[in-house]
Design a protein around this nucleic acid. Sequence first.
RNA 1: GGGCGCGUAGCUCAAUGGCAGAGCAGUGGCCUUUUAAGCCAUUGGUUGAGAGUUCGAAUCUCUCCGCGCUCACCA
Length: 513
Amino acid sequence: MPDYNSLEKIRLQKLEELRTEGVEAYPTRAERTHTSAQAIAEFEAAEKDASTGSAREVRATLAGRIRAMRSMGKLSFAHIEDGSGKIQLFLRVNEVGKERLAFFDKMFDIGDFIQATGVMMRTKTGEATLQVLDFKLLAKSVSPLPADKDVKQDDGTVIRYAALEDPELRARQRYADLAVNPEVRDTFRKRATIVKALREFLDSHDFLEVETPILQPLYGGAAARPFITHHNELEQDMYLRISFELYLKRLLVGNLERVYEIGRDFRNEGVSFKHNPEFTQLEFYWAYADYLKVMELTERMVAFVAEKVNGTTKVTYGKYELDFKPPWRRVEMRQGILDTSGIDIAEHKTADDLFQAIRAKHPNKTPDPKVTRGKMIDFLLGEFLEPTLIQPTFLYNYPRDISPLAKSMPGDPLTVERFEGYAAGFELCNAFTELNDPLDQEQRFLDMGRDYTDDEEEKNPLDEDYLRAMRYGMPPNGGFGMGVDRLVMLLTNKHSIREVLLFPALRKEEFGE
RNA sequence: GGGCGCGUAGCUCAAUGGCAGAGCAGUGGCCUUUUAAGCCAUUGGUUGAGAGUUCGAAUCUCUCCGCGCUCACCA
């Protein structure tokens, strides 16, 4: 039994009264004929016709949740909200009678779902309103929605309304957040539009959407700690995937030339404004393309999606005005790091060399001296270059030792053909000309294992089956991965990944007895 | 995991060692065009949980729980 608060107890009492009066509080069916938006549109069309002589009554049965009630003795106003928006209801004793009006005022609460049948009219203040002839309860709300208006007098002036704001409550009880904050519903509608637009774009470029295993016997394709689970019948541990990469590239071996997947990845890592343990990833692999072609496709794809969701490639993100219109700025990593940190990584070909250079130039900002050269470059990138990448930018040509699945630049064994897309200072996507040489790949896996022997958590298992697939022959190809949640953040001006996830990860809630 | 901060009524917030409060919501009443309705009256609290200090704790201390920001981690 939950502990009901005083407000809930009152509503439970109302439920009891309804039952004794024979009123069904949770009827099985509704008889809606119009959404609120349809009723208003039809009414406005009728008004236009009326001005040319032909008057016509707009009768509708609406259904929705009560969001506001104003009772004034012999008449009452209310606003209900449905999927299309809000609409005002107007009840008078003249139409519904004294008893029914009293019933409405007494038994109905904000949050209840109701149905109302009536005729559209315009009030004195000009609002299109349903004049109610009949109504019924569709679902009684026992718990008051956690929101209210807050009217504060500040030396005579009215300042503020408050909606549900507590970030914990909003995330934990997203249903309530959605119910009271229309702009939150809007964000998730936009998210759906974005995902649909990504599919539309890739489908129209002859990419085949596929689904690969989430439960995997080995994990790979990224450097992250996995979630481990266990299959009882097979008597073996399984991993939730940390990327789709190795499975999608197996499909290229199978002569599928263009494949993509949109789905969930799971990484057992820290949580931050841009990290959630499960997140939505888009990856595609494109035979006979290289990272330059992928770059072009990427900027076109993101611009397409931005147009679909916002009607423009421009977007406001916090204090920035971003424009995703192609072509995006391109910054070669060596040059970018040189420009922002004053260090030329090409002149320091070993980790030790590079460390000395960083320490000489920036004694207050030095990486861990034990890490690889690639990780030091990554450090320089994060420390100096990344914060400058505000407008959409492709940063390209990465150190080989942090890119075990990417192909080296011809003539430069330390660098691979890889790029990352940045906007607003954070990473949006990651792509490269994929390594398709099975012998090189095997060596890279072994190198990686050696580099990280003292860090077991980062040491990916060697995927023999992947190497076997590659030995059959994999066409040269370009691959791409993007955090869809981050794209949604950018296109909806949200500054935390939690705001674009319906149910972000939270610690388990303890319920009392 | 580290650092900083927060947790008071259904919601938004006051009260900083001395009677736990306000607005809105709720409840009762008045009100036939309101929309932040208005007017009168009124209910509502394990101050996140537990322990300690004190004559006295929402306030100070400790432990725990939850959340936020941040750092670390994160191809």
